[in-house]
Design a protein around this nucleic acid. Structure first.
Lengths: 207, 207
DNA sequence: ATAAGTTTGTGAATGATTTCACAAGCGTCA
DNA sequence: TGACGCTTGTGAAATCATTCACAAACTTAT
């Protein structure tokens, strides 16, 4: 299959969210125009995005909500649940560990790690904070799919490399600053300071 | 000035981070090639990005770290500090309120709001949680520049609109689902579930 | 003072993404 | 059935972003 642009993936995710809404409302059919309105894009864009994966619509009618929902889930790999471990039980890590939004969307947080002896053993919601020394051992038996990195920048690259060597295929990175994805590992970075800087830029350079 | 692409702004933010590092190390000069290596891009890209705002380099030598740092801060609007209020003192909002990364980069969290009477009045670090009913009144006197939205999706659009009417010029949105920026308000959305979905896609469709 | 070695700034070329525009397919209604 | 109205799927065109490539400008060495 041809390479799919990151912007396309983001939009698919958006469409998926709308379809879940629409489906809950009981509507059975939706047009590219309606999806476009909801997502702030154009109907041509919606159709192009979907056409990368096949022809799911009916001319004159639109898309079957149920079918498109299924297809998108399939395309996005959301027909299964994913096992997520969180590395770093600080403020951000702890908040993420208890964030309900993850489970709702198919991502189960199954382990939380920290390196601080004072925190290891504490409970965080349902989960007991584990010693990150056991990461590799646990990854072996518990088959984590995704690691969320929420630790201080110091040592973050080393930890990312450990994640890669432990056979975990993806990283969601909350560490600010440069971090290179280990080989064969998919990584997405959420840099909140960078988002604020983008707002600062927008506020400063608005006409 | 011509419109600057979002991708460019993101890179400027990255360069800025590197320059701060480099400056701390005492290096006085840097080439586009070095910046490119650090940021995982090309030297031509770096020069193009910078050339959108002027000619800051010296041929044969590169850029003065101190000067480029100053210029970038100026371009990004980071010569001043920004006043940030956080709306929603749940898990995410509380974590953000105590996130040191913001202050380090020039963003001062000066107020936290919630609508839950049980939480109003509690301390969150240095800040007392205020009743969101006072948002507009406070915005008047305290001149918030940016509102961080960390509330449940229900009612989020209404809250965003209130932020806009209160004269706050920018929103950093952590609410999942569709949210339209009020008129004249710059908005950036951080959707963690969407990031995880992108990883799910990558894991599912890797070759 | 000149030559050799760097590195910038920028048009031109390429590549990627979005938008346009329309033929073709489908449902509805008379 | 046939005509009409709607909506898809998709090449072609337009727009946007990145990379190439090189003259010009600077430093350093001799």
């Amino acid at each position: 299959m041809k390479r799919i642009a990151e912007s396309t993936v983001r939009r698919l995710s958006i469409y998926l969210g709308f379809l879940e809404d629409i489906n809950r409302r009981g509507t059975t059919t939706v047009s590219s125009e309606q999806l476009a309105k909801l997502g702030g894009t154009t109907s041509a864009q919606v159709r192009k995005d979907l056409s990368l994966f096949g022809s799911f619509g009916k001319r004159g009618l639109g898309y079957s909500v149920a079918e498109l929902l299924g297809r998108l889930r399939q395309i996005m790999g959301l027909e299964r649940r994913w096992r997520v471990c969180i590395i770093g039980a600080g403020k951000i890590g702890a908040a993420l560990a208890q964030f309900e939004g993850f489970a709702q969307r198919g991502f189960d947080v199954v382990a939380v790690y920290d390196s601080n002896p004072a925190r290891i053993g504490e409970m965080l919601g349902e989960l007991r904070i584990r010693d990150v020394a056991f990461l590799e051992r646990d990854a072996e038996t518990e088959k984590f799919d995704i690691a969320v990195l929420a630790i201080p920048p110091r040592g973050a690259q080393k930890m990312a490399d450990r994640v890669g060597r432990a056979g975990i295929g993806a990283i969601l990175n909350f560490v600010a600053g440069q971090l290179t994805a280990p080989p064969k590992v998919a990584m997405r970075t959420v840099d909140m300071a960078m988002e604020l800087e983008a707002l600062s830029f927008a506020l400063t350079n608005r006409d």
